[in-house]
């Protein structure tokens, strides 16, 4: 197949442009791993729930507040959308980027705060980490997401500070956004799989 083949003549080598900034690509790969991490939790939860043969929530355990959490979900999705608009404004240099980013951060923080309030209410209703498999999965999955949200919001806050000083590199902003969109977009899956 190869022997005696004519050696191809090539143009002189030139430096290739990067496919995308290093940071963004690294973060994307990390996000794939994170998606599999949450997929592991959610599939494990689905298996355990399926084993319960329709007795769900487990006896003596509260039903998760599906409708009420729709509010939290809306805040989070809105924060993602506002972050995107901040990025567009930053790209077009309209001067509105910092304000929009701040709004996105506040909306994101609002999501975390409402989730916290929900936890307090559920704990009072007897749903704890060890009270049932529902409790164990709920706090671990939603807690893992919450920690990711806090990390991402801190990164957004750092971006905001840098942005106001005019020191924010485009690749860094893009990298932080990739992580935030992951946190935002994985939430609806968790919401529909866990709360319903």
């Amino acid at each position: 197949m190869t022997e005696g083949q004519v050696v191809e003549l090539r143009p002189a080598p030139v430096a290739r442009p990067k496919i995308m900034p290093d940071g963004v690509m690294g973060m994307l790969i990390f996000v794939f791993t994170e998606v599999m991490f949450f997929a592991g939790f959610i599939s494990a939860f689905s298996v355990v729930r399926a084993r319960a043969d329709g007795v769900w929530p487990p006896p003596g355990q509260p039903t998760l507040p599906f409708e009420q959490t729709a509010m939290n979900t809306t805040l989070l999705l809105a924060s993602g959308a506002v972050t995107w608009s901040a990025w567009l404004a930053w790209r077009r240099q309209t001067g509105k980027a910092a304000t929009r980013l701040l709004v996105a951060i506040v909306l994101g923080a609002g999501f975390v705060a409402l989730q916290g309030r929900e936890w307090v209410a559920l704990l009072a209703q007897g749903l704890t980490l060890t009270s049932s498999s529902l409790g164990s999965f709920f706090y671990v999955i939603v807690g893992a997401h919450g920690l990711h949200a806090l990390a991402a919001i801190s990164a957004l806050a750092w971006s905001w500070v840098k942005l106001r000083k005019g020191e924010l590199p485009a690749s860094a902003f893009a990298t932080v956004q990739v992580f935030w969109y992951f946190v935002v977009l994985i939430w609806p899956f968790i919401y529909f799989q866990v709360y319903r």
């Binding site: 791993t33 599999m36 991490f37 997929a39 592991g40 494990a44 980490l129 671990v140």
Partner: peptide, 17 residues
């Protein structure tokens, strides 16, 4: 490795708990 380790990490958290 990246694509397969996530579920085990989830399992490890559960086992640790």
């Amino acid at each position: 490795f990246m694509l397969s380790v996530g579920p085990l990490m989830a399992g490890a958290v559960m086992l640790l708990f």
